[in-house]
């Protein structure tokens, strides 16, 4: 029972745990850079989830070879996640650029201090 729930589905547990760690950082951290790190953990967890669902037990890399009849892992989630990573990187770039600007304007990247400055 427990094995079914926990061990057999360990990939989901890992992704959920990671996601929650990221989510916690986004909500609770005061430092904007830490928030962005949290966001990254959050999306990486989802990427891991995608990759894990594409796996097939006993499957090999999805390269088509003539005459051989083998089981491949599903390549589509991997491809999707390549796109996802690009998106995530872009977002991180924009976020970091924003943080630099914020630091220039406010002199701090702590959210509570910025809120005070905003009045």
């Amino acid at each position: 029972m427990i094995e079914d729930l926990i061990l057999a589905k360990y990939n989901y547990w890992i992704y959920v745990t990671l996601m929650m760690i990221g989510f916690y950082a986004v909500i609770a951290k005061n430092n904007l850079v830490k928030k962005v790190i949290g966001l990254n953990i959050f999306s990486t967890a989802i990427f891991l989830f995608y990759i894990s669902i594409g796996d097939v037990i006993g499957g090999t890399e999805p390269i088509y070879i003539h005459g051989e009849d083998v089981v491949y892992v599903n390549p589509i989630p991997h491809v999707l996640i390549l796109t996802g990573i690009v998106v995530s990187v872009s977002i991180t770039a924009v976020a970091l650029a924003l943080i630099i600007k914020i630091y220039e304007e406010f002199g701090t990247i702590e959210e509570d201090q910025i809120l005070e400055l905003q009045s």
Partner: peptide, 11 residues
């Protein structure tokens, strides 16, 4: 303040 507005929106 627009910077922070954008940052919040981004998150």
């Amino acid at each position: 303040d627009a910077l922070m507005a954008s940052m919040n929106y981004l998150i």
